[in-house]
Structures are given as C-alpha cells and as structure tokens.
C-alpha cells in the first residue's frame, strides 16, 4: 500500500472511530432531547423507538462534529 493510501485510511478510520463513540452516546442519550417531535420545533423529550435510534447512528457518525456541537448546547 502506498504511504498516501495509509495516511488517508488512518484519517478516515480515526474520524469514523470518534464518530462511532459520539453516535452511540447521541442515539442512546441525547437524540430525544435535542429536537421536538415531528411538526413541533420546541425541544422536549421526544418519544423515540429503538429502531429510530439505530437508524440515526450512520448519520451521526458522518456528521459527528455537528452532533457534538448541538449536544453541547451550541446552535449549528
């Protein structure tokens, strides 16, 4: 494998690893608290099924910096 391929794979791997940690915490804890139910923009504790939480994980891995920012109480 070329050195540049190794570097790219490491960067992608680290980003995905950090994203996985954030995404798991987000899906388990934060997701229901950050936005309101469909049609209601006010953040409240929104009922959310296990299936819905699992479906959020891939998106949270991709956008984990945005997820973390919102989780810490900052606007996007």
């Amino acid at each position: 494998m070329t050195p540049s391929a190794s570097i790219i794979l490491w960067i992608v791997g680290l980003y995905a690893a950090a994203g996985s940690i954030v995404a798991l915490g987000f899906a388990a804890i934060a997701a229901p608290r950050l936005i309101g139910p469909p049609g209601n923009e006010k953040p409240v504790h929104t009922p959310m099924t296990l299936g819905a939480r699992l479906l959020l994980i891939p998106g949270a891995i991709i956008f984990w910096p945005l997820v973390l920012k919102r989780w810490l109480g900052e606007p996007l």
Partner: peptide
C-alpha cells in the same frame, strides 16, 4: 448516496434544519 441514505430520516431534517 451514503450521506443521503444516512440522513433520510425525518429526525435529520429537523436536526439539520430544512435549508441545510
């Protein structure tokens, strides 16, 4: 396609806001 599929749930529409 991964980004589209991963954010296709209504939750992401509300989270990211419609314009984004």
């Amino acid at each position: 396609m991964l980004v589209m599929a991963a954010t296709s749930h209504d939750y992401w529409l509300a989270f990211l806001t419609p314009p984004l």
